[in-house]
Computed example of a mutant assay.
Amino acid sequence: MLTEPIQKAIAFIETSFAQPVSLAMLAAAAELSVSRFAALFRAQVGISPHRYVCLVRVRHAQRLLRGGLPPSVVATEVGFFDQSHLGRHFKRALGVTPSAYLAGR
């Protein structure tokens, strides 16, 4: 069960994932100190806040790729710096590159 502060941070991530999201911003959304927030998030969610943001971005990237957008556009739409940044996180999360993901659909 997630506590209210962590739920607030996750809601913030879901609405702001395409923008730069800092640990301080997430802690402020959760109304906790940065160190307390980071520890509580990891304890309740099982991964770091940064990793969670990346997974949310990858999930949204999947949707946009299925919609026909090219990976270079998708990368910036979901908050990654460029296509290679998307590719690294996509492969880490799903085990395949964006192009292999599309080919395997």
Rank of each mutant, 00 (worst) to 15 (best):
Q83D: 11
P70W: 02
V96G: 09
A43F: 02
G46D: 07
F41G: 01
P71L: 01
R92V: 04
V73C: 04
P49F: 05
P98E: 08
F41D: 02
E77R: 15
R66Y: 01
R57W: 07
L55V: 09
A39N: 09
K91S: 11
F80K: 01
G95C: 11
P49T: 03
A61M: 03
P98C: 10
Y52N: 05
C54D: 13
S99A: 11
A75T: 05
V53W: 02
S72K: 12
P98W: 09
H60Q: 15
G67Y: 06
P70Q: 05
F90D: 07
G67L: 12
A61T: 03
G79E: 04
R57S: 06
H60R: 15
Y52A: 05
D82Y: 05
S84G: 00
V96E: 11
H60Y: 12
L40S: 11
R57A: 09
Q62R: 15
T97S: 15
P98D: 09
H85R: 08
G95H: 13
F90I: 05
L64N: 07
A75E: 09
R92S: 12
R51V: 11
S48R: 13
S84A: 11
P98Y: 10
R42E: 14
Q62T: 11
K91M: 13
R92K: 14
R66L: 14
G79I: 03
L69F: 07
H85P: 01
E77I: 00
S84Q: 14
V45N: 08
R59F: 07
G79A: 03
R51M: 09
S72G: 05
F90C: 10
L86W: 04
R88A: 06
R63F: 06
K91Q: 15
A39K: 13
H85F: 06
T76K: 14
F37Q: 04
R63E: 12
A43I: 03
T76F: 00
G68C: 00
F80C: 01
V58N: 13
V45C: 04
H85Q: 09
S84W: 08
L64G: 05
Q83W: 02
G79P: 06
T97Y: 06
R59D: 13
T76G: 04
P71E: 00
R63P: 00
V56C: 03
E77S: 13
L94H: 07
G95M: 07
L55E: 15
H85A: 15
A93H: 08
A61V: 03
R92D: 15
Q83T: 10
P71W: 00
R59Y: 05
S84F: 11
V53G: 02
R59P: 06
C54S: 13
A61Q: 04
F80D: 00
F80P: 02
V74W: 10
G67W: 04
R42W: 02
V58H: 09
V73A: 09
S72T: 10
G87M: 07
R92Q: 15
